[in-house]
Nucleic acid binder design. Structure first.
Lengths: 339, 339
DNA sequence: TTGTACGCGTTATCAG
DNA sequence: CTGATAACGCGTACAA
């Protein structure tokens, strides 16, 4: 049919076929440039025939902007991260940006950032809570906007859009107190994260307001496996806790599994469980998991807005946005007594 | 400390500082090029001082290769897709490639492929099972390697690395028959996918070999919500099925939830459930889900090998790789009688 | 409105 | 082994 096009058509080819200059072709494919309708028509016609589309790489070199946003993501086995990545990608794409994905490997973190930057991404978004601060900082030094979707300990000089971890922990503690629990345990996440620190603080303050302290605590490292061990520890206490708050849903599912499967406990009658993130799997378990978490769509929307704005304006001020969280009561907690 | 570098250093800057030519700088940063140790040392020194790293965009333009691989992914809420994306990214990065992620939106599928191609990716990998065939075909027309990690109906002209769906369905059917089930139901996935077609065929053939037919069937569309409805339908039959095979894990979790939560059934005593994919959540439920699925690492490895090889050699022959599946018996099926 | 000429930052080629 | 010079494909003053 068409001739075997070993090499793609360039703007020069289109120009020749349309009988115009290369500039005319360029302008036709540039938003808001002066081209007569007649010229534009001829160019588009020729472009269609040659199956031409502008080379974004060359365009980037000339415009000194790539229209690419770098996303640093990891732990995609955690549904909340996967969901965030997908939503972010959709939103960015809808705004005309492309995405360069970077999945850092714990071994060679440092090699990757330079590589990401070498692709001249216009901005960087990161969703990893345990990043070394010097990585995003390296990106910042190049003058690119960097937005973190997790607070990173000691990285206050970076833009961030995070959720109200303190409020979330507080809400969980309050719910458990108000539904009559007295021995409330906590399965924490990695202690080097602001997420864990703030959720824990919120929990403690809520319990204190009800005259309680955390009954017991174990570190689940944000992983399912870690939380299985942690749950076994906590449930070996005597008397057992009557409620567990977990710093994420993955760990709460582990607590559910262990308490029912290994200890034969009834949930929520013997043990109430509250997770964090309000991720999809919290709806998939039985009983379905009570969980507190942010409006993900809102977080993504704020982040993308911020990034796009900073790219456009070059605004270099540091901003911190915090989105509120919402408690979603499902089946792993008792119903609140009607006031 | 360092002077505010509004604009990044270029190779010319390094060359000037090192007292050499731009070519020398280029060669220093090019694998296996002739540079004297002395020159290299001077260049690296200057580069370090200026915090220089080569501009990959400019390099791409000149080399006519970007080192970028496009990945088309979607449905990241499905853990198996998220896991695959992460593993693929890691593997590709380890091989020196960067990743351009594309999350197609059902509305404007067609706009995205050209955009992906405009970034001159060296190859395209797709994990979406319901892609329109003309999209990957468009990529193929540009001469780039395209590898699909799902068989797409009617796309035999595209390279593929897929798992043995027929064998998986067959294994599930066989297991259920051998553990004494007689009323085996099937919750299918989207009927426009090869995945669903082959898993179903495998199931039917396995049952037939035991003198059975599928007791009942409902379409769960590969989604959790769809499967909840499907499960309700199936369990409303009288007599009820005594086993359900689901075309993915998400749907199996829904079956588990509904059968226990809404119908008060015991699993696996009243009802056996088998999922597909052997994804992470299959280990998180209680009882843990019996599931059949491929070795994901193997699939990723084969895919990346194929892509890298085809990029390097320009080999345009079409290949189909099929990786075997493995049945992982957990707690939602009875133990096999000891032979 | 159109075309010319130059620049974007790098690599490949080819003399030295 | 090194350095000048020409691509790579496109955007954009500038002059027409």
């Amino acid at each position: 049919m068409t001739k075997k096009q070993q090499t793609a058509a360039r703007s020069a080819d289109v120009a020749r076929l349309a009988g115009v200059s290369r500039s005319a072709v360029s302008r036709t494919f540039t938003e808001g440039a002066y081209v007569s309708d007649e010229t534009r028509r001829k160019v588009l016609e020729a472009a269609r025939m040659l199956n031409y589309s502008p080379n974004a790489i060359a365009r980037s070199l000339s415009k000194r902007a790539t229209g690419l946003v770098g996303i640093i993501a990891a732990d995609l086995y955690n549904p909340v991260h996967a969901q965030m990545l997908e939503a972010m990608s959709r939103s960015l794409q809808a705004r005309g940006f492309g995405i360069v994905l970077l999945v850092p490997d714990t071994s060679n973190f440092d090699e990757f950032i330079p590589r990401l930057l070498s692709y001249q991404v216009d901005a960087v978004i990161t969703t990893v809570a345990t990043l070394d601060t010097h990585l995003p900082l390296a990106a910042v030094q190049t003058g690119r906007p960097v937005v973190m979707m997790q607070q990173i300990l000691g990285a206050n000089v970076l833009n961030s859009v995070s959720s109200d971890d303190y409020g979330g922990g507080h809400a969980a503690g309050t719910l458990l107190c108000e539904t009559g629990h007295r021995r409330i345990a906590y399965i924490s996440g990695r202690s080097d994260t602001a997420n864990n620190r703030d959720r824990e603080r919120g929990l403690r303050d809520a319990l204190a307001a009800h005259g309680l302290a955390v009954y017991a605590q174990a570190n689940g490292l944000f992983t399912h496996e870690g939380a299985m061990t942690a749950t076994r520890q906590l449930l070996s206490l005597s008397p057992r806790p009557d409620a567990i708050f977990c710093a994420n849903d993955l760990m709460a599912l582990a607590a559910l599994q262990v308490s029912r499967g290994e200890f034969g406990m009834a949930v929520p009658d013997d043990l109430a469980i509250v997770g964090y993130d309000n991720s999809a799997p919290s709806m998939w378990s039985w009983p379905a998991l009570t969980s507190v978490g942010p409006d993900m769509a809102e977080m993504v929307s704020l982040t993308v807005d911020m990034v796009v704005r900073k790219i456009a304006t070059g605004d270099a001020t540091v901003e911190h946005q915090v989105v509120p969280v919402r408690m979603v009561e499902r089946q792993t907690t008792r119903e609140r007594p009607t006031a």
